[in-house]
Design a protein around this nucleic acid. Structure first.
Lengths: 125, 125
DNA sequence: CTGACATATGCGCCAAAACGAATACAACGC
DNA sequence: GCGTTGTATTCGTTTTGGCGCATATGTCAG
């Protein structure tokens, strides 16, 4: 699974269930690795490895912030962008994915309101 | 990889390179197993097994004609139909897939005009 | 019925890839 | 400096799934 971005590569990338869950969450809000770890209930090394694949394919972009790394979705050039969009659109109909995405959105909003980085300072009661 | 039709299942199905080549060819014309075998240069059992997966997922429909079996593409219900369409659209930009699809189209036209290859239903002078 | 052809399936093998656990790396607070 | 925390990577193992080959099923021609 290597080479430049192709339909095949994008499909193989999205076909992995955990990876698609990550993409689904990121479609709701930019998230830190630790957020994804918590949202998906998956060990951190697994999250990092999947994020690496997604980054290599160009589906996500990473922004280091201190010791944290913020990941955000990145729409590929057409026509692959439409393929990704269609996959995410299909995910809207599936309860499990919908829930996870809602949680991701909440987490994103939470961070946007408190101007704190990841959960380090004042914890909400 | 089982259960009802889901985004995950469709993605997993299309992510397999040979399977996607089959879908790509079928998007140009309905074809017999032997056609696909020739077009893709792949052993017949491999073609049949991939077609089975595609059939189970509902991406293709099979029509036995004598000892032959004609396979045709079948668009899933929305929003998965759009996902399949987007994947096929992305394939239009890739030379290799484009060529195979052109060959598939030619084969389809050939059969529509002559009644040679696998004999179509008893329609004779 | 028999043999040839088209397609489907069962089985064993193998490779790609995901996982778990441990560890390395890097930035922060003290 | 130290330990702590967040993230990345390595290693070894396991699992999933595709393939080759042989064979079964089914259909037509003779």
């Amino acid at each position: 699974m290597s080479g430049p971005l192709s339909t095949r590569r994008l499909l193989e990338t999205l076909a992995e269930p955990t990876r698609f869950r990550i993409v689904n969450c990121l479609s709701a809000a930019p998230l830190f690795v630790s957020d994804l770890q918590a949202l998906l209930g998956v060990p951190q090394p697994t999250v990092s490895r999947h994020l690496r694949v997604l980054r290599e394919v160009g589906v996500v972009r990473d922004t280091p912030i201190g010791q944290f790394v913020l990941y955000r979705l990145r729409r590929p050039a057409e026509p692959l962008g439409r393929l990704l969009a269609a996959a995410l659109d299909a995910a809207r109909d599936e309860p499990a994915l919908r829930t996870e995405r809602a949680n991701a959105w909440t987490e994103g909003r939470r961070r946007a309101h408190q101007r704190t980085a990841p959960p380090v300072e004042g914890r909400s009661p």
